[in-house]
Computed example of a mutant assay.
Amino acid sequence: MAPKPSHEPQTRAVNLRVREDLRGLIDRAARAQGKTRSDFMIDAARRAAEDALLDQTLVRVDDDSYRHFLAVLDQPPGGEGFARLMKAPKPWQP
């Protein structure tokens, strides 16, 4: 009889060597989030991988859109929303 196909994704081990002080730091952070060391490290690595790939994303636009984008960037900020933002209390100032 053939085994039933599994619908769960296959996992594979990844072995890492880490200094003891870093392992302790990772363990404390994992406990603070209620995660295992493995789950914490996998989540952190996934986020870092996504960020690295997103940083490499190329957005292509036509010439008119690009010129409009540059023109908007060259304009000084302004308007009611900006004025209100600049008048808002700053938490770092007494």
Rank of each mutant, 00 (worst) to 15 (best):
P3H: 05
H7V: 07
H7D: 15
E8Q: 15
P9H: 05
P9I: 13
Q10F: 08
T11D: 15
R12G: 10
A13V: 08
N15R: 08
L16R: 13
R17H: 05
R17T: 14
R19Q: 09
R19P: 02
R19A: 07
R28S: 06
A29T: 14
R31V: 08
A32Y: 01
Q33C: 03
Q33M: 08
Q33R: 09
Q33H: 12
G34A: 03
T36P: 01
T36R: 06
R37H: 09
F40L: 01
I42P: 01
I42C: 01
D43R: 09
A44W: 00
A45C: 10
R46N: 07
A48Q: 05
D51T: 14
D51Y: 13
A52G: 11
L53F: 14
L54G: 07
D55S: 11
D55N: 11
Q56N: 09
L58G: 02
V59W: 03
V61G: 12
D62V: 07
D62Q: 03
D63R: 04
D63V: 09
D64H: 08
S65N: 10
Y66P: 00
R67I: 04
R67G: 09
L70D: 05
A71H: 07
V72A: 12
L73D: 09
D74Y: 06
P76Q: 11
P77T: 09
E80W: 14
G81H: 05
G81A: 03
R84I: 10
K87C: 11
K90H: 10
K90T: 05
